[in-house]
């Protein structure tokens, strides 16, 4: 059974996704909605990391329950810098690039959840399937957010 591997992979994906969201938030402090919402929904990935670590033991994997990517001093500096840089037009392009990155990370994570759910179903692991059913919708919401924000931001950046 390779469910342990799938859990480990997802644990890594969710950690990456949380990190990508927090890094984007830090880089776009002057784009206030991105700054705040990215932090709010990074929390979902961090909760998923904890939940995956908790269930990992049942499948023979030992995972760190503490999510990576909590903001530290370096990120605070990045926030201040982004605040000051916010007055020029370059951040618009950077925002599009970051949203695209988050979209891809979240989409990959979404696929990982699908894989895990398929495996859990096949192996009749009820608790694991319930975890996937509970968490996957959050990931889909992260995907939709990145997609929606990208769509909304693209025009002004590209035509001006």
């Amino acid at each position: 059974m390779k469910l342990g591997l799938a859990i480990e992979e997802l644990h890594r994906s969710e950690n990456h996704l949380a990190g990508a969201l927090l890094a984007m938030s830090d880089r776009h402090k002057a784009d206030h909605e991105v700054f705040h919402v990215a932090r709010d929904i990074a929390r979902w990935s961090q909760e998923h990391v904890r939940a995956l670590a908790a269930i990992g033991g049942d499948f023979g994997v030992d995972l760190d329950p503490e999510p990576k990517g909590d903001p530290n001093v370096l990120e605070r500096v990045r926030q201040t810098a982004s605040d000051l840089l916010g007055r020029s037009s370059a951040p618009g392009l950077l925002l599009l690039a970051d949203l695209r990155h988050v979209y891809r990370e979240a989409s990959g994570t979404s696929l990982d959840w699908e894989l895990l759910a398929q495996g859990a179903q096949g192996a009749r692991k009820k608790e694991l399937l319930e975890l996937a059913e509970r968490c996957h919708p959050d990931t889909l919401r992260q995907v939709r957010w990145a997609n929606g924000k990208l769509k909304e931001s693209a025009t002004q950046v590209l035509v001006s």
Binding site: H32, E33, R87, S89, G92, E152, S160
Partner: peptide
């Protein structure tokens, strides 16, 4: 979606 007021001020801030 239509540009909301806070975003309009943001676009004015970055100069577009």
């Amino acid at each position: 979606p239509p540009t909301h007021a806070m975003q309009m001020f943001r676009y004015a801030e970055e100069g577009s």
